[in-house]
């Protein structure tokens, strides 16, 4: 999904950038004092950056060649950039209604995700703890979860529209219901896998249930919880775009749908690029947070 989108952005940048990566490598060794460290760092950066740049540049060239012909149904990267230049350069305009810059669409979508996902994180960790801790809760709830989690996000939308009679809470509910299952299931596994030793320590120290939850359960299960949270954020970002296409209003999903209705294919491609990048950043954000929070836990 994000592949063609990535091409759009890099078109103007990639070609001058590929050669510019080489000078970075060659400049570094000229410095005498810490030359070697810099050279090493530059080399490492180059090793990571250059291959994807080459691949992206190649794909852009192929795309350009394929879509350049007259009568092609999709625009080539050069045309995408030309068409969407204004949207790229000024993401903050607001002409009222839904005629807003991409920044506003993305921030509206992110806001919905923030609400729905936060609720899912809280409910997911709480329910996951319950299911992980109590055999009876697991026996009662687990089959239910296993069935409910297979329902596609959009299938919930009509039901939530019927219940809330409004687009905004319905979209938030869809985010919630999409991302809550992996959080519940991973938290439950994490809680179930807490070593008996830690429980014994808590028993000897006589931690009360609340202290046991915050001081033992959460840190011990944190690696699992963050796995669930990471899957959850990915799913919510997938679901929001689809849900917004249906509920309308401001949001990146509706922006895409609107662009399709007005046959602005270039705008769709640009939007897909942003959706991909933001999805990637959200994933990195949760992964980074997980790394900070679970520091020490994984390496026992």
């Amino acid at each position: 999904m994000s592949m063609p989108a990535m091409k759009t952005e890099i078109t103007p940048v990639a070609i001058p950038q590929t050669p510019s990566a080489a000078p970075v490598v060659s400049i570094a060794p000229k410095r005498v004092p810490r030359a070697e460290t810099y050279a090493k760092m530059a080399k490492e950066a180059a090793v990571r950056v250059v291959p994807p740049l080459i691949v992206v540049a190649l794909l852009l060239v192929v795309w350009e060649l394929i879509c350049r012909r007259a009568g092609s149904s999709l625009p080539p990267p050069s045309k995408v950039f030309k068409d969407t230049k204004e949207l790229i350069l000024d993401p903050f305009f607001d002409h009222g209604g839904i005629d807003k810059g991409l920044f506003w669409h993305l921030s509206a979508s992110l806001q919905r995700v923030a609400y729905g996902y936060s609720l899912a994180a809280i409910a997911g960790i709480a329910l996951g703890t319950l299911v992980g801790q109590s055999v009876w809760a697991m026996r009662g709830l687990d089959p239910l979860f296993q069935v409910l989690r297979t329902i596609p996000p959009l299938a919930w939308l009509p039901l939530s529209l019927a219940a809330f009679r409004d687009g905004q809470p319905s979209a938030i509910f869809v985010i919630f219901i999409t991302s809550v299952w992996p959080i519940i299931i991973n938290t439950a596994v994490g809680i179930r896998n807490i070593p008996q030793d830690y429980r014994n320590v808590a028993a000897v120290v006589q931690l009360n249930p609340l202290e046991f939850f915050t001081k033992i359960m959460i840190p011990a299960a944190a690696p699992y919880i963050f796995t669930g949270l990471r899957i959850g954020i990915g799913l919510s970002w997938l679901a929001i775009v689809a849900a917004e296409m249906l509920i309308g209003g401001v949001g990146i999903g509706f922006f895409i749908w609107d662009a399709w209705n007005s046959s602005h294919i270039s705008e769709i491609i640009l939007a897909l690029f942003y959706v991909g990048i933001i999805g990637f950043l959200l994933d990195r954000l949760i992964a980074g947070l997980g790394k900070v929070v679970t520091r020490g836990t994984a390496a026992n």
Binding site: P195, D197, Y198, N200, V201, A203, V204, V205, Q206, I216, P219, A220, A222, T294, R295, G296, T297, A299, N300
Partner: peptide
Amino acid sequence: NSPGPDRAVVFQNHSLLPW
């Protein structure tokens, strides 16, 4: 008949909390 700090245990595998 329940655990308590008056009978503190040193566990075989140390059981320190890694976090």
